[in-house]
Design a protein around this nucleic acid. Structure first.
Lengths: 135, 135
DNA sequence: GGTAAGGCTGTACCGGGGTACGGAATGCAA
DNA sequence: TTGCATTCCGTACCCCGGTACAGCCTTACC
């Protein structure tokens, strides 16, 4: 039946995910259950591939799956609370990312100090007053 | 018996970890099993608190528990392969941290673009040729 | 209508870092 | 010595993001 609907394997292939991952996303509520064939096989509309790509893009941007679900929900035309959702969440995430960068910079600084101190024995280093780890 | 040895709860309290976490670290091989009382209770030497603080510091620096175990092992005076271990691992981790910072900067860039685009409907945004998410 | 590829379900497992529970035994102070 | 806090041990469970397997069923194509 060439009705434009896709089988699970085709969706998975097109989106670059595992078929099991599709089921996992259904369980997690990230994807709606599609219509089934008489035999119980899922027949996906092609749009689901875009949704999957969105999820993957959100993950790359540091969103968790729950956050990705919220993003998709906020972006859904069927969602009552349209407008501002995506933008607001992206801005919040931007703040988180800034914070992570700052944290990592501090970590980098500490590691650099540890390397520069030529500190090669943690117990001795930890006991010394100049220990960059601040124990 | 005031012999300077600490009970599990005292160690946990001093190091700011859960008592269960001590047992977990023993299982993971991060902490040596200490001497036991006649009744089988662990009596820790005070130094173990420093080791725990080292583990926590290593975690803050982005090391996994396995890596922390290696660091402690490399730092132990009883370890045959002293010298260079800590420094080398710190340098490796430094490279990883630099990479993470670069990744986050790219993410920040993309998020900024998404916010600037005022994109508030993912499906529409994804379909547009100017979509910063690059779907 | 046969057959192979693909899909269905439930369940278990991975790794990382723990936390919780229950029942018995110990430790310690009054 | 009594009584309460603490610790013991094994085991199970948590979150996160999946992945794997077994055994059966459907679909698609020849």
């Amino acid at each position: 039946m060439t009705d434009g609907r896709l089988r699970a394997g085709e969706v998975a292939e097109a989106a670059g995910v595992n078929v099991q991952t599709l089921r996992y996303y259904h369980r997690r509520g990230l994807l709606e259950e599609p219509h089934r064939s008489n035999g119980g096989h899922r027949r996906y509309p092609p749009e689901v591939v875009t949704v999957l790509r969105l999820i993957k893009a959100a993950q790359r941007l540091g969103f968790t799956l729950d956050e990705a679900a919220e993003l998709i929900d906020a972006a859904s035309p069927r969602s009552g609370r349209r407008g501002g959702g995506l933008r607001r969440q992206a801005m919040n995430k931007l703040t988180e990312v800034e914070q992570k960068i700052a944290d990592l910079r501090r970590i980098r600084h500490t590691l650099t100090q540890a390397v520069d101190a030529g500190c090669d024995d943690l117990m001795t280093c930890a006991a010394s007053p100049c220990c960059p780890l601040g124990l």
